[in-house]
Design a protein around this nucleic acid. Structure first.
Lengths: 344, 344
DNA sequence: TGTTAGCACTCAATTGGGTCGAGTGCTAAC
DNA sequence: GTTAGCACTCGACCCAATTGAGTGCTAACA
């Protein structure tokens, strides 16, 4: 037995209906609501075939059928191939998004909120990461008599700062001179390279050894434990609107997964850094998400780093809508981060 | 009729039992489990009195009694007055907390996580705020050919940064000179004052008018819309463990409240900035939290700003435990933020 | 006068049977 | 190959009966 055009149409109708209603769909529903010109009995025969082929599941004998993960896979693939996905009027909604200049983390948080409210599912946004950033400028800014703020500007436009303690009295000018020297030495190098360069520099500049030593220590710390990426989550409560999560125990598991950010990040990030993925049910590889699907897209920054945006919803999610929203948002974020430098 | 010592003891037992089990407690339970040397009948009489006094509620006639908000209030007040609250071995647990230097926001996030896992309730931590910070140093750091990062160091040790666009070619030295001039002019002034000072300065320094104008614009933006405080939430999923939230609809409302951070912040912050508050049930003033209690404490930073930490749980929460954990965490955070400047 | 035992009463929760209805599979007719 | 018809299945829903925890009241007791 094989998949023919008619089976395909019927399967499509079943998936559509199930996405809409969330209850098992029967043969009568299909023959009536989606006028196929076939009686329920015929549909039944076809459904029976589709079940045998693994596209449908039956919760129990006297209930309708529900689409299997395999069916969703087929559905999504054909959606993607056919390029059926248009943007509706979504972009107009999102334009209000870019009002003011923000910190990157604010943008990410906001993006998660926007995506979740547009999709009515749970949204996850990961901050960019990728190749090692190269140092562009280093500057020490006096904070108090005995502490200075270290500002490191990298080519990805991302700025990291932390304070270090100063030993002797150092005025602003001295700090500036040292900053220039450090910048000169490290500019164009990655963090790791810098850690190799610095020791030589320290021995050359005896006067400021103590300060440089502290700076080196800080850099080394940073290298050893890079700041974990920011993970923004929005709309976790949306999941509870779906009957799939009427079971409190299930909901709790889901929520506590959403709370362990590092695990969540690795799930969303998946294996590769593919531009676009749809993982359905078991494909997620996460037992807690056996009846969830994850759709992800990526965005990139000017510096060539990549971030990920994702939507988590029930397997019967509105794939085409979600996919187009993620597409839209991905390109918006890419524009924002690589376009105007002052937006960062 | 009045509250006597015996009624008090019985009420205490009822509260303890209800906190433990979460189900209405009957007279037999009290007379058996907590040996008072009284029969259930006597307890019943007393309970009836306590109900009349407003300390107990009865869900329906043939069920046991549950403590009213008034009862919890009495309970908490006596707890606080008696100073019964010891720290158990909590501080040892928390010591692993301060491993490395963090950004403030990381510390806050982590604190929320630690509190929620210690209490098994939902924890909220608000970043400090308070009197207007005074500018200490302003420094422009070159980021690219046509953009600079503005670093403003304030006396609260909190650093804010955003980038501005440069007009002409400006090398690092020029930027430094300008920075010194700005610092000189603004040092010791608040943001608002600075916005009044700057126009005069701009007219005096014709050459860099464009840059200063942009700087002024940025400062003004900041003043008009101060960066909203960071709100960290931990353990939202914990709430679902309690039978009070077995109702999915209720749980969803709660969760979506946890997601609207600004509303949450104002709830937690309450009216005043009291060092310590316990709000029980209706006292929270939030309809969604009619059967929740909120316990908050504050911590302070060196700069005299105050932050808030809070725990949200069912009204039958383990008050004494929660209170001591918040006490402990509040002082730890105060130490951290006002002690070592390099931890910020 | 306060305490207790006993008893009737209440009412949510549970249990179990009965009905309903959506849905299937099969067969026979078209 | 398609359809109509029918028997059958099984979860969902409804309803009545039962159970049991708990109360309030009364009368007896110390």
């Amino acid at each position: 037995m094989e998949m023919d055009e008619r089976k395909m149409r019927i399967l499509q109708a079943i998936i559509d209906d199930y996405i809409l209603t969330g209850v098992p769909v029967g043969s009568r529903t299909i023959s009536k609501k989606y006028d196929m010109g076939l009686s329920s009995a015929t549909i039944r025969n076809e459904m029976s075939d589709l079940e045998e082929l693994g596209y449908l599941d039956q919760p129990h004998v006297s209930a309708g059928r529900i689409p299997s993960a395999k069916a969703y896979r087929l559905y999504v693939d054909s959606l993607l191939k056919a390029g059926k996905i248009q943007d509706d009027r979504i972009d107009t909604i999102s334009s209000h998004f870019f009002g003011r200049a923000h910190q990157m983390e604010d943008v990410i948080d906001h993006a998660a909120k926007v995506i979740s409210s547009l999709t009515r599912y749970t949204a996850v946004v990961l901050s960019p990461r990728g190749k090692m950033p190269k140092i562009q400028t280093v500057q020490l800014v006096p904070v108090s008599r005995d502490a200075a703020l270290v500002v490191i500007v990298t080519d990805t436009g991302i700025v990291r700062d932390s304070t270090i303690r100063l030993s002797g009295d150092m005025d602003s000018d001295t700090l500036y001179t040292i900053s220039r020297a450090i910048t000169e030495a490290l500019s164009g190098h990655t963090l790791t390279e810098s850690c190799e360069i610095l020791p030589g520099m320290i021995s050359r500049m005896q006067e400021n050894e103590a300060l440089l030593q502290r700076f080196y220590g800080m850099l080394n710390d940073r290298r050893a434990s890079p700041r974990q990426p920011h993970v923004a989550v929005g709309g976790t409560s949306n999941m509870l609107s779906y009957p799939e999560y009427n079971d409190v125990e299930k909901a709790r598991n889901f929520l506590s997964l959403m709370e362990t950010r590092d695990r969540l990040a690795s799930i969303i990030r998946g294996n590769g850094e593919m531009a676009f993925t749809v993982r359905i049910g078991p494909e997620t590889g996460v037992p807690e998400m056996a009846d969830c699907s994850i759709v992800t897209a990526t965005y990139s920054t000017g510096g060539g780093q990549q971030g990920t945006i994702g939507v988590i919803g029930p397997t019967r999610m509105q794939y085409s809508r979600v996919i187009s929203i993620l597409n839209m948002m991905g390109s918006q974020l890419t524009d924002l981060f690589s376009g105007g430098d002052d937006a960062e």
